[in-house]
């Protein structure tokens, strides 16, 4: 392959994305950075201040806890779903996959309101339970940690199913046959073949939902309580309630840096696998 022509072709294909990045994404981002360092003063005082603040630290911990738990549960659920999908005949799998992806095509705002209707104090689930047990049941399932996690897991599962399913489908069926003829029991086959060979998909899915969940705003805002504030909500708080834009910018930049630090290895790893 001619090196220069391939570079030129790449340039042509990449240019729309590059143009959007340079002229539409970068300016506000740079302005946020500019604001956070107090303009041309390049002062990092605000960073020191933010990092030292108790509210920020508490929110950072909450962000990691909610992201971690929801990603782990999503992974387990997603793996089970992917396993089931992988074992289905192609036609059936396409239909089931459509059902898995359905929530992904629905606005997160709509889903959050739907969960309010379902999980609220007088919501569908509590009403059914009340009727079934003939008592006035009001399980607290929204405006708290549970609600936040349910909302998070709801959008994470479809995203983690896809890469795992791709990995599972890539496993040669003959490998399973070979393993069982060679004397391996189902549990051993599951562990040494299924799990091991789906690891790339698991890792890719896990990292991408983790990075995305770090920046969650809508779910904790609508389904969470005051203790489920995540970093994005903090940014919102400073920019709209307190109108302290430099501080909001600083937190945004920190959140951005954290996300990149998790996303970059994934991107690099994907590239190294492709070559």
């Amino acid at each position: 392959m001619n090196m220069t022509s391939s570079i030129r072709a790449t340039a042509i294909f990449m240019s729309p994305a590059a143009l959007i990045a340079i002229f539409i994404v970068m300016p506000p981002l740079l302005y946020v950075v500019y604001t956070s360092v107090n303009g041309l003063a390049f002062s990092l005082d605000l960073y020191a201040d933010v990092v030292a603040s108790k509210l920020f630290r508490q929110t950072l911990i909450t962000t990691f806890v909610i992201s971690g738990i929801s990603c782990f549960v999503s992974l387990v659920l997603g793996f089970v779903v992917a396993l089931h999908l992988a074992s289905q005949p192609a036609r059936r799998r396409a239909i089931l996959l459509g059902l898995v992806l359905l929530p992904l095509w629905t606005s997160i705002l709509v889903k959050c309101f739907a969960f309010m209707v379902l999980l609220g104090r007088e919501g569908v689930i509590n009403s059914i339970l009340s009727w079934a047990f003939d008592a006035h049941i009001q399980l607290p399932m929204i405006l708290n940690r549970i609600g936040t996690l349910i909302g998070m897991i709801n959008w994470q599962v479809p995203l983690v199913v896809l890469p795992i399913l791709a990995s599972l489908l890539a496993i040669d069926e003959a490998v399973y046959r070979a393993a069982s003829i060679m004397g391996a029991k189902p549990a051993r086959i599951f562990w040494t073949v299924t799990v091991r060979l789906s690891l790339p998909g698991v890792l890719a899915g896990l990292l991408s939902i983790f990075v995305m969940s770090l920046g969650s705003f809508m779910v904790p805002a609508l389904l969470g309580g005051p203790k489920d504030l995540m970093l994005s909500n903090l940014v919102d708080y400073y920019s709209r309630q307190v109108l302290d834009w430099p501080r909001a910018s600083t937190i945004s930049v920190i959140l951005f840096a954290i996300s990149v630090s998790f996303a970059a290895p994934l991107a690099l790893w994907r590239r190294s696998r492709r070559i």
């Binding site: 070979a178 393993a179 069982s180 003829i181 004397g183 029991k185 073949v193 060979l197």
Partner: peptide, 20 residues
Amino acid sequence: MPPRERGIGMVFQNYALMPH
């Protein structure tokens, strides 16, 4: 009898090795 208990060896056309 399930395959694993038969004690048969098999060589496959597409090798069916564990890639990892």
